[in-house]
Design a protein around this nucleic acid. Structure first.
Lengths: 128, 128
DNA sequence: TTGAGTGCAAAGCATTTGCATCACA
DNA sequence: TGTGATGCAAATGCTTTGCACTCAA
């Protein structure tokens, strides 16, 4: 059978996502990983993201129409997108009151939810 | 100076979005409009979406990593994405309690929010 | 040693742009 | 009639795939 080998590239890519302050886009992941592995190809980044996703080590979230990757196992959380610097942060608060199984008028059965908050991050807010 | 002309294509595309049950993707808009204008090119769809967006008649929302278009002026609302049929619906309810200007721990200044609910739509729920 | 993994380049797709033609105003 | 709009095709830009070489096991 096939087995996933431990390579330096995969190690670095996984570490970049692991240590991020929030979900990262592909160019950002490639850029950060390249500071450690300058010859890292973009194709390897895409292949590794796919592999790590299949292994459930990471997963994709859609923010502003682009796919960002973050590690799994962070529990229930949401995202904050800064309107000034465009960085996306992970927030461990949930402003939604929706017990699983809630049924909305019209017959919509809710199983999960995603929230993205927009505004100014701690770095940008004081400058506004 | 430049002026936007009223053409059959723009009329049909705007109508398709106007009458939709929720935000639509580009292929869906093209497909529905083609039932009325078979020779409608995909480039015209993209150009018209851009124009209507600039005119604030419609705007894009990101759901599941793809850009969907919906008419403006629907007031505060959110979206419901059916996990079975993949259709996206507009919901005029808001499960979020976040007064504008709320500041979260850490200094995140919230100005707006987007919520996407996932589950089964009225058509698919009974079949589950 | 050997086959999975990688880098590079080519191929795929979705979106945008160039251009000759078409049709609103 | 003249200019903006359209359809088609070529051009982009991002993501995936093919292939020869590399290296983890």
């Amino acid at each position: 059978m096939s087995s996933a080998r431990a390579t330096r590239q995969r190690e670095v890519i996984a570490q970049v996502i692991e240590q991020a302050e929030g979900p990262l886009g592909v160019p950002e992941i490639h850029g950060r990983a390249r500071q450690i592995l300058p010859r890292l190809g973009i194709a390897t980044v895409y292949r590794t993201l796919k592999l790590l996703t299949e292994q459930r080590q990471i997963h994709a979230v859609a923010v502003d129409g682009e796919s960002l990757y973050e590690k799994t196992g962070q529990g229930h959380h949401h995202h904050f997108s800064c309107e000034r610097c465009s960085r996306v942060f992970t927030l461990h608060v949930c402003p939604v009151d929706l017990p699983g199984g809630t049924v909305f008028a019209g017959g919509f059965l809710v199983r999960s939810h995603e929230v993205t908050l927009y505004g100014l991050c701690p770095t940008c807010a004081p400058q506004a």
